Simulated scan of single mutants.
Amino acid sequence: MSSIMKVFLLLASMVYISKAQLGESGQQCLCQRVRNQIASKSDVKDIQIYPATVFCDTVEIVVTLNSGLRYCLNPKLNAMKRLLANVIKQKTPTTSTTARPTELSSTARSTSTARI
């Protein structure tokens, strides 16, 4: 087999593997499937909100239960829109000293974590 043919086959296999890793949509999102409802609030340990990026164009909401199970929620639901609005409201500095129903912490990667 000629060396040009070997290079072509190697290049073609690299392209095929990279396309397979990106998935069907061409994006690298954490959430492949989403749920439309949340478990009971007493079972929820942590909620992480990942904003849209160049790698994934949707907001992703990842819920961690006390048992360690993790799943994604649909950010288009009204309850999730209210949760996102609360998180955004908490990120903006305010001068009020009223107690808030959730705590918010964020990391350097712009990931917001809300604790219920």
Results as ranks from 00 to 15, higher is better:
69 L>C: 02
61 I>G: 03
63 V>G: 00
70 R>E: 13
72 C>F: 02
57 D>W: 08
71 Y>E: 08
55 F>V: 03
73 L>G: 10
70 R>F: 04
61 I>F: 01
53 T>K: 01
84 L>Y: 10
66 N>S: 03
83 L>G: 07
62 V>W: 01
82 R>T: 15
83 L>M: 14
73 L>Y: 10
70 R>A: 08
77 L>C: 10
72 C>G: 07
63 V>K: 01
75 P>K: 07
82 R>G: 11
78 N>M: 14
75 P>M: 06
63 V>W: 00
62 V>Y: 06
76 K>F: 13
67 S>I: 04
65 L>P: 05
75 P>T: 08
68 G>Q: 04
70 R>S: 12
78 N>Y: 15
68 G>V: 00
53 T>A: 01
76 K>A: 15
61 I>T: 01
71 Y>W: 09
72 C>M: 05
74 N>A: 02
69 L>D: 12
53 T>I: 00
66 N>W: 04
81 K>G: 10
62 V>C: 03
82 R>C: 12
65 L>I: 05
70 R>L: 10
57 D>M: 09
57 D>I: 02
67 S>K: 07
78 N>G: 15
79 A>R: 15
78 N>C: 13
84 L>I: 13
53 T>S: 05
56 C>L: 01
67 S>P: 04
54 V>R: 09
85 A>S: 15
76 K>L: 13
79 A>T: 15
84 L>M: 14
80 M>I: 05
62 V>E: 06
64 T>Q: 09
66 N>E: 08
84 L>E: 12
75 P>Q: 09
59 V>F: 00
85 A>N: 15
66 N>D: 08
79 A>K: 15
80 M>Y: 00
78 N>F: 14
59 V>D: 00
67 S>G: 00
59 V>P: 02
65 L>G: 03
67 S>H: 05
74 N>K: 03
65 L>D: 06
58 T>D: 08
79 A>P: 12
69 L>F: 12
80 M>L: 04
53 T>M: 00
75 P>A: 09
77 L>Y: 10
61 I>D: 02
58 T>E: 11
75 P>W: 08
70 R>K: 15
65 L>H: 08
62 V>T: 07
59 V>L: 00
65 L>S: 05
76 K>N: 15
74 N>H: 05
85 A>F: 14
85 A>G: 13
70 R>G: 04
53 T>W: 01
53 T>F: 03
82 R>A: 14
77 L>A: 11
83 L>Y: 06
67 S>Q: 03
71 Y>T: 06
59 V>K: 03
71 Y>Q: 09
82 R>K: 13
71 Y>N: 07
85 A>Y: 14
83 L>W: 06
56 C>E: 01
81 K>L: 14
57 D>G: 07
71 Y>R: 08
71 Y>A: 06
58 T>K: 11
61 I>S: 05
56 C>P: 01
55 F>Q: 11
74 N>R: 06
55 F>H: 05
74 N>L: 02
80 M>G: 01
64 T>S: 11
73 L>Q: 11
83 L>H: 05
82 R>D: 14
73 L>A: 14
55 F>A: 11
54 V>C: 02
80 M>E: 13
72 C>H: 08
54 V>H: 07
64 T>R: 10
73 L>I: 12
85 A>R: 15
70 R>Y: 04
72 C>Y: 06
70 R>C: 09
61 I>K: 02
77 L>N: 13
85 A>K: 15
74 N>Y: 04
58 T>V: 12
78 N>A: 15
54 V>T: 09
70 R>P: 03
68 G>K: 04
